[in-house]
Design a protein around this nucleic acid. Structure first.
Lengths: 184, 184
DNA sequence: GTTAATTAAATCGCATACGATTTAATCGTG
DNA sequence: CACGATTAAATCGTATGCGATTTAATTAAC
């Protein structure tokens, strides 16, 4: 009784032929022209993909550091932003992190439930929620060193800083282009 | 009847004082020491954050290009990988994209449902699912030009290429470090 | 040649991102 | 003052990422 591993809706017809070579030939037969290989830009040449995959890599590199603290990568970034400047509104934090309340709110709620910060309505303007670190949240700062990851980047400090500036510039250029596109 | 905008579990006590200035002073009073500002690394100095936010920026920059095609950023990257080399297994595609089947499967199913690719069990080894472009999927290639985004990066071609290589190197270094950490 | 170990995808649960909408508070104008 | 416009968060639905597990097929060991 041979049952193919789940592949829900699309029915995978598999006639099961005699020899393996025969099957391989049969498969080629459906695309005979030796697949001309489109000769276009490769994934590896895309800057967007370099950034995309480097971001995945950072998430994985930070995991062994953050897991013991019970933090995710994004939660950590939110804390870095608060270490830099405590007692920010959700909007201010969002501006720094390039996120909006729809993404931030659940993250901040989580960090609050972990005891690292407090969320309080500004009595001045009840629409505003102010976010401030707890003692516990401040203490995390020492426990989460990223020095090891500067090393893991494999770049000497000078190049590291240069790269950081260039990628930041790239980000700002892209976001400017987005803004421009929204107007024009 | 003044009811503060939803802030589910955490009860936001807001005594509502008389004058705004009085409240601001009152607020400062809870953190009187002028907030010594920890004097540590700033978010803007983190390479990981530069990459993180540049990735968000790319997602937003691609949106106006991809929305008309009904594609998301990740779906687009999967298609680029297939334009480069058609008829890949899920694992092969995952290696190129730095993703695994748990993430890829739903994306590929979506692209299949859109008619841009086919997923078929390899009759040679029924565990393997081969992914190949449809005519429709191939055609998308011409419609999705990223030239405009090279311009949007704001870098002259030479620097663009250099940056791309550096970020790629960064990614590879980080992933090597992850691997190393898993062993040692 | 059966059975244990391995392998490739898929599934499940949780945590981001983000467009669109909703809610509640504040502002602006008459 | 009153009422529409604006604003700040939150909510909802969809689409990634990813750890952990599951399923089915293949390979390895005996």
């Amino acid at each position: 009784m041979s049952k193919a591993p789940a592949m829900s809706p699309s029915k995978s017809v598999s006639p099961k032929m005699a020899s393996k070579t025969a099957q391989k030939i049969a498969h080629k037969a459906t695309a005979p022209k030796a697949e001309p290989k489109p000769a276009g830009p490769k994934l590896a040449d895309f800057l967007c993909f370099a950034i995309y995959s480097a971001n995945l890599a950072y998430g994985r590199a930070y995991k062994p550091i953050l897991d013991p603290l019970g933090l995710t990568y994004t939660q950590y970034i939110a804390l870095v932003a608060l270490w830099e400047e405590n007692d920010q509104t959700v909007s201010q934090l969002g501006e720094r992190m390039f996120l909006e309340s729809n993404t931030l709110t659940p993250i901040l709620k989580k960090l609050e439930s972990l005891g690292y910060l407090r969320r309080r309505r500004d009595s001045d303007d009840e629409r505003v929620v102010r976010v401030s670190l707890t003692e516990e949240g401040r203490r995390l700062r020492e426990r989460a060193s990223q020095r090891n990851l500067v090393k893991a980047s494999g770049f000497p400090m000078e190049d590291f800083v240069k790269l950081q500036k260039q990628v930041t510039k790239l980000r700002d250029n892209l976001l400017d282009a987005v803004k421009e596109g929204e107007k024009g």
